[in-house]
Amino acid sequence: MNKDFLNTIMNGDCREELKKLPDNYVSACLTDPPYNYEFIGHKWDDGEIQRRMERVKDSNTLVKNIPYGSGLAGGIRNKSWYKKNRENIVDYENWCADWAAELFRVCKPGATVLVFNSTRTVAHVQVALEKVGFYARDIIVYRRTSGIPKGINMQKKLEQKGYQDSEKFKGWHSCLRSEWEAICVLQKPLKNNYTETLLEFGTGLFYTEMDNGGFQSNILENIKRDKSQDYNVHCTVKPLELMRRLVEIFVPRIKGSIVIDPFAGSGTTLVAAKEYGIDYIGIEIEPSYIEIIERRLSEVSD
């Protein structure tokens, strides 16, 4: 086994960095790529994120920790709007397929891949990864502790416009309260069957026994949020408890197991892997985040 990559963070675009890894090398992938909020055509680095966050800092926007940027959020729903919406989706899907193709190559047969995404676009991520050879297994529901309605309150909208009888539209909104996040579960095809794949590659299975003796479901809830670390300025940090649960369920805890995160962010996947004594590889395009990852990893006892 090539050990040069183990327990390291590679700095760069994962589409290029993944090419440096050997074939059939990693046992699992847990990753949280940028969602499709007008992502295409922008350099997704810390400068871009901060620019978007500045746009909502003093606004009435309820969610201020997520980078603003979707030009598709408003506007007149005419033919041009829907055309732009569709083009954006296709571009995002193609971008996902670009990095997924290299990820497929470096995964062992039976390796499980988990990709976070929004409820609106997780289907496009699944399709992109299926195009390059992965097999769709499930969608995990990560139920957050709260959710905020982000659409139009039609009663208030009509009141602002001076319409009479606006109260008739009390309770009518343009969306539901968003309370869960999707985690797409895919797998590189097995070698003939689960038993043969397990014995040769140590992959293919999910750990389903819960602490209370129950059988693990595909809904994860009651996950506590972490206390924010002053030095961790990443805007979308996943709870460490959540990543621990995902590592426990989907990453083989055996000798030679490797988990990869091509969009390492602030390194929560890698921290969880290190806590379990599992070798990891992180890839992150933003250099300033690597300092955060290394600091967090240094706080985990070997």
Rank of each mutant, 00 (worst) to 15 (best):
M243K: 07
S228V: 00
T8I: 05
N193D: 15
T197I: 12
K79W: 00
Y231F: 15
F250W: 13
R55G: 03
Q155A: 13
K224Y: 00
R253D: 14
V63C: 02
R253H: 10
K131S: 02
K20E: 10
N60M: 11
V115D: 11
G71A: 07
I254E: 13
K84P: 06
I283K: 02
F5V: 11
D226W: 03
A73T: 12
T195K: 03
F104E: 11
V26P: 04
E159M: 15
N192Q: 10
I290T: 07
L199E: 15
D211G: 07
C107Y: 14
C184K: 09
Y82L: 10
Y68C: 01
S266E: 08
L190P: 03
R296A: 06
S257D: 02
V125L: 13
A136F: 15
M1F: 03
K224P: 00
K168W: 00
S174G: 04
S228L: 01
N7P: 02
E209T: 14
L190A: 01
L270P: 08
D58T: 11
F104N: 10
D4W: 01
Y163T: 08
K84W: 09
E93K: 14
W81P: 00
I49T: 15
L240S: 01
N94H: 06
I40S: 08
D226E: 08
V106Q: 04
I49H: 00
V185E: 14
T203Q: 09
R52I: 12
K161M: 13
D226P: 08
C107V: 10
G265K: 03
G171V: 04
T269A: 09
K156N: 09
Y135Q: 14
Y142L: 12
K156W: 03
L198P: 04
L103Y: 08
V26E: 01
H173A: 08
T208E: 15
R55V: 12
D230Q: 03
A128N: 13
I283R: 01
E130Y: 05
L30C: 08
F116K: 12
Y207W: 13
I281R: 01
G41C: 13
K191I: 05
D261F: 14
T8W: 06
L242R: 00
N60F: 09
N85H: 14
Y163E: 07
E275T: 05
V132H: 06
F116E: 12
G151Q: 02
K238W: 11
L158I: 04
Y142E: 12
L21I: 00
N24E: 10
G12T: 02
Q155N: 11
F116P: 10
K43I: 06
